[in-house]
Simulated scan of single mutants.
Amino acid sequence: MTVAARPVVAALAVVIRKGAVLLVRRRNPPDAGLWGFPGGKVEFGETVEQAAIRELAEETTVAAVPGRAFAAVDAFDHDEAGILKRQFVLIAVRCRWLSGEPVAGDDAMEAAWFPLSALSDGTLETSLGVAEVAARATAEDAG
């Protein structure tokens, strides 16, 4: 397998509404089967905010308005032998819900709203950094 020479830039759509966070269960690696924010690769010529809104619509059918990017998460995809295959830089964009209820699409197996408390009580198997990014988004809302 060829190792990518550079990290892949991806956007995460962080949507929090009425004390609940919108998450998708990933269909594909990395993190297949885990819950995380809707998101994906930033396409050439696309802003991070545009990518977040596009991925949100593709994975959940939810419409939102992008706010600002507020956090970055490094994600590393290793093979069974522990060799690094791919590196992602995930840029979190706070998005304001406009309309729609989540319906899984694209590479999401499921899409749903979860109470913020579900991120810290261990009831959900999430991707690395999901609880921390959600906490930071809610802290920014309060501040």
Rank of each mutant, 00 (worst) to 15 (best):
A142F: 00
G33P: 08
V89T: 03
S117P: 03
E140T: 14
M109R: 02
V62F: 12
V9D: 13
S99H: 00
F76G: 11
R25M: 11
P38Q: 05
A112Y: 03
R68P: 06
R26M: 08
I53A: 11
A71I: 12
T2N: 13
K41R: 15
V89G: 03
S99A: 06
D79G: 12
A5I: 10
V65M: 13
R6H: 13
A5D: 11
A51W: 01
V21F: 09
E49L: 09
A4Y: 14
M1F: 14
V14R: 00
V89A: 04
P7R: 01
V48T: 10
L23I: 09
P7Y: 04
E80A: 13
L128H: 15
F114L: 03
P38Y: 07
L56F: 07
L34T: 13
E49P: 09
F70V: 10
P29H: 14
E140F: 15
V9W: 09
D79Q: 13
A32K: 11
G45R: 12
L34M: 14
V8H: 04
T47E: 05
R54H: 09
L128W: 14
R54W: 06
A10Q: 11
L128S: 12
L128Q: 10
P29N: 09
A104T: 01
M109S: 02
V130E: 00
D31N: 15
T60C: 07
A20S: 03
P102T: 00
E132P: 05
E46M: 09
V130Q: 05
L128C: 03
A137G: 12
F88D: 08
L98V: 08
R54I: 10
G19I: 07
